[in-house]
Amino acid sequence: MRIALVEPDLSRAEIVSRLLFAGGHACQHFMASAPFLACAADEFFDLLLTATWAGDRPAEDVIALARSILPGLPAIVMMVAPRESEIVGALQAGADDCLSKPVRGPEMLARVDAVFRRAGVCRPPNRTRNNFGDYFFDTTHSEVRFRNQCATLTPKEFRFALLLFVNLSRPVSRAHILETVWARRRDVKSRTLDTHASRVRTKLQLRPEYGYSLVPLYGYGYQLNEVPPDGATRAPLPEPDERIVETL
């Protein structure tokens, strides 16, 4: 996951960054909240990890400002020898969890993972074959079989589609998509992601008449929803073994 770390103490920030990297997360450090908030207007993050005093304003203000830019952004506040009243105040101000400083690696990673679980964001499992209802994902050949069809996707389209199905009915942030599909953040334009979403929707027929709906979430990312039949007439199934080939 992509984590924004706001920590004025450089030595502590280096320790936290290394621990997060060891836990499989990408971490971008900011010495104060102002550069983080400026970056959040263009970048996407899955979690905010901030000190009680973020260098220029308190954590409570940082969380509120961050969520005005990235709605629903999970947040953890790091505190030095916190009193109960401080923890209660941070949680009531919107923090999802609190950590004592200096942080303990295993505890921090466990709390980070717990926040992500509560947020409902998952990574695709590392398996060769995955089944999701009528959709059968073959990682070896980047193929998806569904309703007597076989769609051949580009590797990026395949990873994008698998991520959406793993997180069915959950919002998936652009940051999480870009990290999982492109394995990097920079030099990937917004329209590139939107183009891939459109191709995945077309190739896998993710339309309500077929039981699924892929919707963009303005300023956040995408969400794949399962659409109940509700007595509606489904579109006729195509002929067996019809193939949809990759376009890129």
Rank of each mutant, 00 (worst) to 15 (best):
T52C: 02
R67N: 08
E157Y: 01
L10D: 13
T180R: 14
T202N: 12
P229S: 13
L47E: 10
Y212P: 02
V16W: 01
R2N: 12
D194T: 10
V181I: 09
L204S: 07
P82S: 11
L248Q: 11
V215M: 11
R12M: 15
C27K: 02
A81S: 14
Y222S: 02
H176C: 09
A13R: 01
P8F: 07
R184C: 10
P236K: 10
L70Y: 07
Q149D: 04
L91F: 00
P106V: 08
R207L: 11
L20T: 07
K156I: 03
N130I: 09
V115F: 05
S100K: 00
T154I: 04
Y210I: 00
R18D: 13
F158W: 05
S173I: 03
I3G: 05
F158E: 01
A95H: 02
T247C: 04
A22W: 00
I69Q: 08
L19I: 15
F36M: 14
F21N: 13
L214P: 01
K156F: 00
K156L: 13
D230G: 11
D194N: 11
G120I: 04
L73Y: 04
R2W: 00
V215T: 14
I3V: 15
E246K: 15
A175Q: 04
R170F: 01
R104C: 11
Q223H: 02
A81H: 12
T195S: 14
C122T: 06
R191C: 05
D46R: 09
V80Q: 14
E84W: 03
A64N: 01
Q149M: 15
E242R: 08
T50V: 14
D230K: 13
P208S: 10
L206C: 09
L162E: 08
R111P: 03
V200F: 13
M31Y: 06
V144I: 11
V227H: 05
R207Y: 02
V215C: 04
P71R: 10
H25E: 06
M79P: 01
V80I: 12
A66S: 15
E246N: 12
A26V: 12
R186W: 15
H29R: 12
V166N: 02
F30V: 04
A93D: 13
E60C: 08
L73K: 01
V227Q: 03
H141F: 09
K189P: 00
L237M: 10
R2G: 00
R145M: 11
D230S: 14
P171T: 06
